[in-house]
Write a protein that binds this DNA or RNA. Sequence first.
DNA 1: ACAAAAGTGTTCATCCTACACCCATGC
DNA 2: GCATGGGTGTAGGATGAACACTTTTGT
Lengths: 232, 232
Amino acid sequence: MPMTHDAPDAIIDALSIDCLIFGFQKNELDILLVQHGEGISKGKWALPGGWIKYNEGADDAAARILHDLTGVSRIYLEQLRAFGDVHRYPTKRVITIAYYALVKPEAYTLGAGFTASDVKWFKLGDVPTLPYDHSDILEAGLRHLKHKVRHEPIGFNLLPRKFTLLQLQELYEALLGQKLDKPNFRRKLMKMNLLLPCKEKQTDVSHRAASLYRFDKKTYDKLSEKGFTFEL
Amino acid sequence: MPMTHDAPDAIIDALSIDCLIFGFQKNELDILLVQHGEGISKGKWALPGGWIKYNEGADDAAARILHDLTGVSRIYLEQLRAFGDVHRYPTKRVITIAYYALVKPEAYTLGAGFTASDVKWFKLGDVPTLPYDHSDILEAGLRHLKHKVRHEPIGFNLLPRKFTLLQLQELYEALLGQKLDKPNFRRKLMKMNLLLPCKEKQTDVSHRAASLYRFDKKTYDKLSEKGFTFEL
DNA sequence: ACAAAAGTGTTCATCCTACACCCATGC
DNA sequence: GCATGGGTGTAGGATGAACACTTTTGT
C-alpha cells in the first residue's frame, strides 16, 4: 500500500540518497566515507546515505543527512544525478539520488553522534573498494567536479575563508590534475576582481608571508548577471 | 507492502520520469509536448512522462517512454537530474527523474499509437503554461543544453545527418541566442576536423549550393581520448 | 648566506574578431 | 544584373604560455 500524508515521517520506498562529501587537505582532495554498522556490507566503507521522508524535499533530505553526519549546515550541496540501474543494489530495487558537497576545513567537525571509527576522510588515492555502485557515483562526481570547477567559482568552498593565492593554485592543480604556472595563474585570478584582499598576511611561515584573500561572492553575483562567466 | 521481484512489471511508487524532447526546425528550437487525456490536468499540455518498472533501469524506462511516443530508438538521451520538491505534484508525493533527448528531423515520425492531437511540437516561444513543475524542468533543461552544447558536440543530434555549415551555424545561433560571424564560425569548425565532407551539394536552392557534411563521431572519440575538447 | 615562496615583467606565438572581398547560381 | 548565400583573405588586437627576474622573511 503506498504511503501518503497519513504517515509524513515515513520514508519513500525504493528511493535513497547518497552523498559525495569532498574536502581538501594537504594539497589532496579527500572524500568522507562511513562504515556500515550492520546489514549485508557490515564493516565496509561506503558513501554516507539515507532515505527521503514523505514530508521533505530531496534536497532537504540530502542536507539533513549531511548535517547529521558533520554537524554543519549551510554547506555547498548540489545534486549530481540519479542512479537507477536495476541491479545497483543487491537486496531490492533502490534508485538513489546522488549529491555532492564541498566543505571547508573549518567545517571539519565530524561526527555529531558518530565515533572516529564510523566516519573517516580518505585521500582519493586511498579509497577502498566501495560497495554497490558507489565507485561509479564517485567517479561521476569527480568528473563532474573537475569540469564544473573550471566554469564556476565553486572551488572556494574547499578552502578556508581566508586563503593565499598559492593555496588556491594548489587546489586547482589537485582538482585538474596538472601543474599551473604561478605568475599566469595569479594574474588571471586577479584580473577577475573576485578576490577581496583581507589586508592580512600569513603568519608562522618560514618564508615571505603571502597576502590573504577572500572570495567576493557579491561581486561575482553582480558580474554574473551582466554576462560574466568564470573560466579556469 | 513494498513490491519486489515477485511483480517485476509493477511500477515503482512515488517515482516517475519526465522527458524533454528537443527538435530543431525553421531555425527554431522545438519541444515535444503531450496532451493529458485524463486525470486532474486533463486537456493540458505537459512533458511526456511515465513510470519506472521494477525490472528496468531508469535510463531504460526513459528510452522506452521515448520510443513509445516517437516510434524511434537510438536517440540521444541523457538524464538531466531528479526533481524532488515535496509539493511538485499535487495529489501525492512523486519525485521525478528528468531526461532530455535531442532528435533529428528524420526521426520526426510522431505518434506510434498517438494522434496529432495527443502529441505536438511547440516552438519554444509558444510553449503554453505547463502543469506541476514542468516549467522548472524545461528551464533547467534549456540552461543545461545551452551550456553543454558549447563544450560537447551534441548539437549535431538536432540536425539531419547531412547538413551545411550555415545550418550548423544557425543551430548554434538559436541555441546560444546570439549571432555568429560566418567566416570565423566556419574556420573554427573546419579546424577541428570533425566534419566529414559528403562530396555532395545542396539541391533545390536558389543560390550557390553549399557542401554537405556529416559529423565524424569516430574521429571525435579518438581525439577525445587524446585530451581534445570541443569548444564552442 | 641560503632556502623558500611572494610577487613582477617581458617576450613571443597563437588565437579571435571584424570586416572586406570574390564566387556560383537561380530568377 | 541582382539577390542570396557560399566561401576566402587579412590586419590588428587580445590572450595566454614560458620563463627570467626581483623581493621578503625565517633559519
